[in-house]
Design a binder for these strands. Structure first.
Length: 375
RNA sequence: GGGGGCAUAAGCUCAAUGGCAAACUGUCGCUCUCCAAAAGCGAACUUCUAGGUUCGAAUCCUAGUGCCCCCG
């Protein structure tokens, strides 16, 4: 009882996966780093109790808020590895337009190389690293394929487990709120893969009719779905039609139950500052060859349709390349679209009362330190 | 100097038989259980000014103001 005081208030729901997933924590014997290097000291292995929930960190915020930098700094300071939570950075070849962190060169300066080795000797060599910090879930899919939240969830869970096995701090960092939640809270996403043919067929039907059908096939889902949102309606129908079963209820026990203790750090600069950052960053991306990047993707077999659906940079640059809008308009349009996106992201994050909003790295570090030291 | 045209939201060479002032863009807000940088929803802000006709005016009349065009 004495060491379960924290859990006393909210008794954890012990689901089979949860118990099984935790059987390995804390790891019994892990190669000690021995060096006292603070890259590697992270007390995720301490406090062994039956209900030990490992700690993970999330760094969230809108586009251009400086998440990636903060995450890297925190990773260096607290011995962490980063798991990107960005629905576009998962794709290979989409670098400039998504603002992916720069991948380390093979030939790094000797000091950096040393830091690398110390920090990451037990991680596969192929892992994406930036500034010596391993980044997971970047470049894991071809842009010609459809990568979904389920894929993300699976890979993210695996990454978290692996990082914890190395006694390091998993840091989920990204702006795709839905992905973060899918990873952190063990969302029960139905195992029904997308069916392009079915979707194409349903696409031709009006929202009204789709809603009607859903009402008959899955009344529960129909109750809280947006009846005018075709995309959602199609997905919901896809689930019933293919599995023969209605969508799992989000109010089930799994909802908002996390396998982990998670500290969410949020970054949200002043609106005018954020706008300025968006502006500067967009111009920088253009200089870095964003247009060429999109051209290359299309040459590599990514359809215009697909590029359009990726949104933002990929949508408007490809429209420009198709001659649908002049360059000037592409830029100004993009700027407002990115701003809109940032606001949508904030709408999502605002609802999450667990997020602790910080102004800078110092504030963040204080919180993280306290979190790590707590039991 | 003379003649003609136009004036509607923050923006738009933007709609409205004399009868409830719209659409689009922007601004602001929201929704979300696998296409989530997607998709969807909502709100605030309008008839150039002053008179007149009329039950009723963005609309018709008069004057003013501003802008544009034509003739000299």
């Amino acid at each position: 009882m004495s060491n379960a005081t924290g859990a006393a208030r909210k008794p954890p729901i012990l689901l089979p996966e949860l118990v099984e997933g935790h059987a390995m924590y804390p790891p019994k014997s892990y190669p000690s780093t021995g060096s006292g290097n603070n890259f590697l000291t992270f007390p995720n292995s301490a406090n062994a109790t039956g209900r030990y929930r490992p700690k993970i960190l999330a760094v969230v915020g809108p586009n251009a808020s400086g998440k990636s930098d903060l995450a890297i700094r925190l990773a260096r300071r607290f011995g962490g590895e980063i798991i990107s939570a960005d629905s576009r950075q998962v794709y290979r070849g989409m670098d400039i337009g998504t603002g992916k962190v720069e991948r380390d060169e093979r030939r790094a300066k000797s000091e950096e190389r040393r830091a690398h080795r110390l920090a990451t000797f037990h991680i596969p060599h192929s892992t994406f690293r930036s500034q010596g910090i391993p980044h997971h879930l970047l470049d894991v899919a071809s842009p010609r394929t459809t990568f979904t939240a389920t894929h993300y969830q699976k890979l993210a869970h695996r990454a978290i487990r692996d990082i914890l096995k190395r006694n390091r701090l998993p840091i989920i960092c990204g702006g795709t709120g839905f992905y973060i939640d899918a990873a952190v809270y063990n969302y029960d996403l139905p195992a029904v893969p997308p069916n392009p043919k079915l979707r194409a067929r349903l696409e031709k039907i009006t929202a009204e009719v789709l809603f009607h059908r859903l009402k008959k096939l899955d009344p529960r889902r129909a109750k809280n779905i947006d009846p005018r949102n075709k995309r959602r309606l199609i997905r919901a129908l896809e689930i019933v039609l293919q599995s023969g079963r209605p969508s799992p209820s989000p109010s089930s026990a799994l909802h908002r139950t996390s396998l982990y203790r998670v500290l969410k750090i949020g970054l949200n600069p002043q609106p005018n500052k954020l706008r300025e950052r968006i502006h500067v960053r967009l111009l920088k991306r253009l200089r870095q060859g964003m247009v060429a990047e999109v051209r290359k993707l299309h040459a590599g077999g990514v359809s215009w349709q697909k590029l359009d659906d990726f949104g933002l940079e990929y949508r408007y640059v490809s429209r420009y390349l198709r001659g649908l809008l002049p360059k000037e308009q592409m830029i100004s349009r993009l700027e407002t679209e990115i701003w809109h996106y940032a606001k949508r992201q904030m709408t999502w994050f605002k609802r999450d009362k667990e997020i602790i909003w910080v102004k800078n790295e110092r504030e963040a570090a204080v919180r993280v330190k306290k979190f790590i030291e707590s039991c």
